[in-house]
């Protein structure tokens, strides 16, 4: 099968360049008061720059506002303070073009088969049929789903359904991919394999990736930089560069540096996690 470009290429595939793709400036979010409860400060203020084409993992204690941060960048939530700038344009509170989001929950469309699930966004975008077929077939082959193209989501495992969601995002060629704990419901072996697939995908493209995860090993293994957040309201307490080469896979877990990195992330998070648990 001929290689199809899954993501619009704006720089060399898999190469993080120094220019800023998405800039977060003084982002903060407070949930309004509800009955019997005052306003809840959930996030920030925080500043962060995503460099074009880099893979950033965000880790932090439960409830620290990681998902809120992702929804702010995606335009699904308007922050109570601060701005989001993507490619030089402010996008705060709007769903910008060229953003793809993969959620933790199963977001497959139960009424469509795998092929139609993946083609959903392309059809809405009015892309011609031959191009849809080309992109969908390539994405399914890339994600190892081509044999299941006529299956319905209910016939697939959790990992396969998540791959359908990733494929559905990829065929639209987003320049920014936001992943909200996409492997959270999977077992450890499947997570590792899915992580490898994600790395393979990222290397083939020029997309900037933001991965939210609660798994420190996953963050350490997959990313160029790990943003570590404090307990609620989540602020950035450190940004750790992993220093891994672009060509990397799960064999890194045997590297002593991997253990050092994971330990460092844990030492940064230990007190914050205790704070989040109230112990």
């Amino acid at each position: 099968m001929a290689k199809v470009v899954l993501i619009a290429e704006t720089s060399a595939p898999g190469t993080a360049t120094a220019d800023v793709h998405v800039a977060l400036r003084a982002i903060a979010h407070t949930y309004p008061a509800r009955a019997g409860q005052g306003p809840v400060p959930a996030l920030g203020p925080l500043d962060f720059d995503f460099r074009r084409g880099e893979f950033v993992a965000v880790v932090g204690p439960s409830g620290c506002g990681k998902s809120t941060l992702l929804e702010i960048i995606a335009g699904l939530t308007t922050p109570t303070a601060g701005t989001v700038v993507m490619e030089g344009r402010p996008i705060t509170g709007t769903v910008a073009e060229d953003i793809g989001v993969v959620f933790q929950e199963d977001a497959t469309f139960a009424w469509l088969n795998v092929w139609d699930n993946v083609a959903f966004g392309l059809r809405r975008a009015g892309i011609e049929q031959a191009e849809i077929v080309r992109r969908v077939d390539y994405a399914l082959a890339f994600m190892g789903l081509i044999e299941f193209r006529r299956a319905y989501p209910a016939q697939l495992s959790g990992g396969m359904r998540q791959r359908v969601c990733i494929a559905r995002t990829l065929v639209l060629r987003p320049r920014l991919i936001l992943l909200d704990e996409p492997f959270g419901a999977l077992d450890q072996q499947t997570r590792l394999l899915m992580g490898e697939e994600l790395l393979r995908l990222w290397r083939e493209t020029a997309a900037t990736v933001m991965l939210i995860t609660h798994a420190l090993d996953e963050a350490a293994l997959l990313s160029d930089r790990v943003a570590v957040m404090s307990a609620r309201p989540g602020r950035l307490i450190d940004v750790v560069a992993t220093g891994w080469p672009r060509e990397r896979d799960t064999a890194l877990v045997a590297d002593p540096a991997f253990g050092v990195l994971t330990s460092r992330l844990w030492s940064l998070l230990r007190d914050e996690s205790k704070k989040a648990l109230g112990v």
């Binding site: 769903v95 793809g100 199963d106 139960a110 009424w111 966004g121 809405r124």
Partner: peptide
């Protein structure tokens, strides 16, 4: 209707009518 599907509709920039017809109606069927 799973809330995540409504989020997918928003990220896909479907608009309310397409969201109702293409997402909510089949999800609720």
């Amino acid at each position: 209707i799973p809330p995540v599907l409504v989020k997918v509709a928003r990220v896909s920039r479907l608009g309310w009518l397409r969201t109702a017809l293409l997402m909510k109606l089949p999800a609720a069927s």
